[in-house]
Design a protein around this nucleic acid. Structure first.
Lengths: 196, 196
DNA sequence: CAACCAATAGACCAATTGGTCTATTCCTAT
DNA sequence: ATAGGAATAGACCAATTGGTCTATTGGTTG
């Protein structure tokens, strides 16, 4: 993606999202960051008065919104919930390969290091909750009961998070592509168990 | 855990494991580390000639071995594979609560940041593979077919990794305690699918 | 054109980073 | 007792960290 035409603020956000994802919040210095975004330090502190921390929050938000779009696109043409979830896994596998097979979860890598920064943690939770809800909405759309939709959505989230982590260690997207096998047969259980 | 009686090298390893887990490799300075371990800099470079990187590898190894022990303990008194896996989830939930509900995966937090350091990544994969194999061995012990045991073990690994991440964002071990519901009904599938 | 403010630009700073190096202390084997 | 290496101790270092500050540019209003 060529970002050179974007306004400075967006270049900063994207460079931050990319770098944080691959090296973690503390692993990225402002020098690297500004070089990558081809922006001077003055611009950073103009657009983000609180500096690195503000930028990290913005980067996580942007990356999280991207993820929401990927989820929506995956379920857009789906015939069933499993269908959409499967597409999602494959899309993410492709994304994993395209980004060098080394990056972590954009939200986790960026926000899970600000030791004492409670704001970071709260924001991470919001992002994750947003992803789960997006999946859950599609589950609802396919007729799943409220509670069941929630459970299925969370299940998919957990597998993808875990899968991404293992994929990273293995430098291979294979795990991600194998996820559908794991939730495809998952039970419509608890409240509906009685009927099966 | 009072570590003050341990030899310096072990104090360093444990302090490193603890700090890296909560703040990530780059989030921990040698000053914090040495203060936490109450050791002077000279000792660090005596025991770990390559400094921080060596220490991180040692810390990850130590933490990984601890995890192997937790897995073994969980399956030790188990009647079935699900039984053991369930105990494991609950043990980890308790561990999560005891460690302040904020720490990440000891291996991932420590090793997934050394950008160019291929050694880190390789070591992370070895650790993860070790965990999966340990679970797989118990699955075998309960009579599961080789391929199926492998799949079940990996499934448990993925759920725990994802669950831990979500638990961290939510500052709650609830997710971890709910994991057994998700793999309890998992299919003995693939090679056996034809018969169903 | 002038006034004004958003944005860019980068010099500069104190604090911290990971790491090196020289002393000194401690323990053990002879 | 003493020689010698393991271990401890911390002063010291260059490089980098995140952040501040002043100066300048650019564009949009009046």
């Amino acid at each position: 993606m060529d970002t050179s035409a974007l306004p400075t603020k967006d270049r900063l956000i994207r460079a931050a999202a990319q770098l944080f994802r691959s090296r973690g919040y503390h692993g990225v210095g402002l020098n690297d960051l500004l070089a990558e975004a081809t922006a001077p330090k003055g611009s950073l502190y103009h657009h983000f008065p609180n500096g690195k921390a503000d930028l990290a929050l913005a980067a996580a938000t942007w990356a999280s919104d991207e993820m929401l779009r990927v989820i929506a696109a995956s379920f857009a043409g789906a015939k069933t919930f499993e269908d959409g979830a499967t597409t999602l896994c494959f899309k993410l596998a492709k994304l994993f390969d395209l980004t060098g097979q080394q990056d972590g979860c954009p939200v986790g890598s960026t926000l899970f290091e600000g030791l004492g920064n409670a704001e970071f943690l709260r924001h991470a939770e919001r992002c994750y909750e947003g992803w789960i809800e997006e999946v859950q909405d599609h589950a609802n759309r396919f007729g799943l009961q409220e509670a069941d939709a929630r459970r299925r959505a969370e299940h998919v989230f957990l597998l993808i998070q875990g899968g991404w982590q293992l994929a990273r260690a293995r430098k291979s997207s294979e795990v991600l592509r194998g996820l559908p096998e794991l939730f495809a047969y998952a039970p419509q259980r608890a409240s509906t168990t009685g009927k099966n």
